[in-house]
Design a protein around this nucleic acid. Structure first.
Lengths: 204, 204
DNA sequence: ATTACTACATACAGGTCTGTAGCCTTAGTG
DNA sequence: CACTAAGGCTACAGACCTGTATGTAGTAAT
């Protein structure tokens, strides 16, 4: 006994990871409610019992999907912030630009969190809390960067950036390949940031 | 035979309208996929056969729901535009303000079109085309008003307003009763509009 | 070589989904 | 009164849903 399953952890983790990746893709592109467990099982070439060995329920799989996207997003955020560690103003723009680039990719069908919440509007439904926490954390990060950049109304600017990014993600799901308003994301963020910085200076 | 069902049209129309209202509320607040026909039947106190007399399928009911929201939105738009028929600049702000007020209402759970598209991501799925057409029409209206208001980059401003409004609607579904970035909608639109008008002047 | 682990395949329980069939009730109209 | 239109009620078909039960095969460590 003891803890000898450590050696098998890599194999077990690989299967779990494989199932999660298949499920994540299906959830993201097709919709969560639209995808049944049987489809996930068939696509991943795994037995149904195996899936339920790794995930107690579909809800747990949904949560794992969103938590995965959350950690990926923050990992991407760290990389973006590392490009100009001494310029919060540039960091703000870099972050927004990374969103615009993400949305511009043809594979993108919007924001996993916004999509999930549209399918599960109630606060106690699967994924809702994870999505809300993600958005709150991003909002706080925007505010932190704005303050560091010398923006007086930092929390206002954070909210404005949230509107822009969420709007761009939402638009992407509607327009798909058509030319969408999301292309104006970075330019608009720059306009707003400059307006804030100009008014900060004028008040000195 | 002939067309003697004209006299009963009001009664028949009333039943249809009743079913549609119940279904619309359920779709909007609970989600479209999450609501079954049986629930709609139970809530509206109508026989299942009656529902299928008026709507050939659930998909048709979904389309009727979104078309209803679309006409309601444009009716509201007309009323808003009528407040300052000679000031396109004020009309732009009025429209955005009407969105902010709509979102601020506690009953609001976001935009029916964005929510529907999140549930039906494919272009040929029920409702998607209606939602896309609605957003395109709004975008064109923003552009038209912006041009009339003397904004040089009118279509850019239209896209920016789309990002803000869609962002506000999307945020509402996530945050619900919590204080959301949507409160900054009108103020941000004003900032952008002023920035556009200022740059238009400076280039003369 | 026994034990433990992991994943396999199959079948099914129990529920919900959309949509239909058959028959009855009510109300208004010629 | 007889006819017709509209809707109600019940039951069900057939598909799909999540989750479980049963039993088997390979693999790895003790």
């Amino acid at each position: 006994m003891k803890d000898n399953q450590v050696k098998n952890k890599s194999a077990k983790g690989a299967t779990r990871q494989h199932i999660l990746e298949i499920a994540s893709d299906l959830f993201y592109y097709t919709g969560i409610r639209a995808v049944g467990v049987d489809t996930i099982v068939a696509r991943s070439g795994v037995a149904k019992t195996t899936l339920y060995d790794h995930f107690a329920s579909k809800d747990e799989l949904i949560n794992a999907y969103l938590e995965g996207r959350d950690s990926y997003a923050w990992q991407m955020m760290e990389e973006t912030l590392a490009k100009h560690p001494d310029s919060p103003r540039q960091q703000l723009i870099d972050v927004v630009e990374s969103f615009e680039n993400l949305i511009a990719e043809p594979e993108s069908v919007g924001c996993p969190f916004l999509n999930a919440v549209a399918e599960f509007p109630e606060l106690d439904q699967p994924g809702h809390q994870i999505a809300l926490a993600h958005k709150q954390k991003l909002r706080a990060k925007f505010a932190e960067l704005a303050q560091a950049a010398g923006v007086k109304a930092a929390s206002q600017l954070a909210d404005q950036f949230m509107l822009l990014t969420d709007g761009a993600f939402a638009a992407k799901r509607v327009y798909r390949s058509a030319q969408s308003p999301a292309l104006q994301l970075k330019a608009t963020a720059e306009m707003l940031l400059e307006a804030h910085l100009a008014s900060s200076k004028s008040k000195i």
